[in-house]
Design a protein around this nucleic acid. Structure first.
Lengths: 183, 183
DNA sequence: TATGCATATACAAATAGTTGCATATAGGAT
DNA sequence: ATCCTATATGCAACTATTTGTATATGCATA
């Protein structure tokens, strides 16, 4: 439901094609509002019908024509209005916790492997966040406000991933104990 | 996609009606796999067709008949198989972060209010988790394994909510500064 | 030479999830 | 009297998201 707002934010910063936005989503807004290119194309299409965005078609020799989207006055108004209305906290939805909840139904080692696998992914994401921090936000106070806001979202990722790691360590200890007692 | 597995877990512990499961979801599995009663009824219906669960109809005078569901051998097998296959880490999907990302488009005070609102909700959830911890998991080592696994999922909630609070405090400081500088 | 990737958009089908409504009764609160 | 809550299930419509496919080209890699 917020995809359109994410798209309005993206297009507010810089106009662009669906393709470009889809790519940018892999490094920016997509960290907290993921969307596939199909979804983005569809949503941009609907938003154009509703006059929240408009596009200019640019022909290219030997390639499909680009549609360069921009936010309309209408779109901007709608974005500002949304930014001022309360949003829900996201619900937790994590299959790993279902597995853990039913942990007594399978060997502890199976869960241990799964925790380790998740931990490896988590560590990779955390280190990616940290290298972004080092590269772009080394001295955050010196940055323009726009970037400092973005830094706050990055900090969210870092805090959450660290907390996840701490919890996973605790779970590991417990599972190792379980595996040991079972043998 | 994992709703059916959550339902199999729930019914593995204790057979019951869709209504009962829907209620239990508000305190148990629903913390990490939320589902409405409509969704639960529909999914149980499909699962019955696929012979993962079976039900017994119990007539009641002056009330609609109950359907008491239980897991079939097939269902149990399918659950065990799922428990042993890797699952994805959930994607982050948080509209508040979209707002923060676009924070320079609205007054800092608007965001401050929103952060405070979320913080109040977060605090309430955290304190609920803590009272559950005090009530049921005061001495976790003494509990049966089944309960200890459930305790691990509770710890996930507590860790995540604490991390959220710490981050929110950081964001508050930043926003207060922004609000101050703007005036 | 074949495979895959980058560019650029889009339809179609399926699954997942939300929202609103409908039925039926009984007890408690206003 | 009226409204709300609990019990118990379900249909229908809609929105959101995923998955698979199609088109068309050029470049790089194996």
């Amino acid at each position: 439901m917020s995809l359109r707002h994410a798209l309005l934010v993206s297009l507010s910063r810089k106009q662009g094609t669906g393709y470009e936005i889809a790519n940018e989503f892999d490094r920016g807004l997509g960290y907290f509002w993921p969307a596939s290119h199909q979804q983005i194309y569809q949503e941009l299409g609907k938003m154009a019908v509703e006059r929240l965005v408009a596009f200019t078609r640019r022909q290219q020799p030997d390639k499909p024509p680009k549609k360069i989207y921009r936010v309309t006055g209408n779109g901007r108004k709608s974005l500002i209005a949304w930014l001022a209305t309360p949003v829900d906290m996201p619900a937790v939805k994590d299959p790993l916790l279902i597995k853990l909840f039913a942990g007594d139904l399978i060997p502890a080692q199976t869960l241990l492997d799964e925790i380790d696998r998740h931990n490896a992914i988590n560590a990779e994401i955390l280190s990616r966040y940290r290298s972004i921090e080092k590269q772009y936000f080394d001295n955050p106070d010196a940055l323009p406000a726009t970037s400092q806001f973005i830094y706050m979202t990055l900090l969210r990722g870092i805090t959450a991933r660290k907390a996840w790691r701490a919890w996973a360590l605790r779970v590991r200890r417990f599972l190792e104990n379980q595996a040991h007692n079972a043998s």
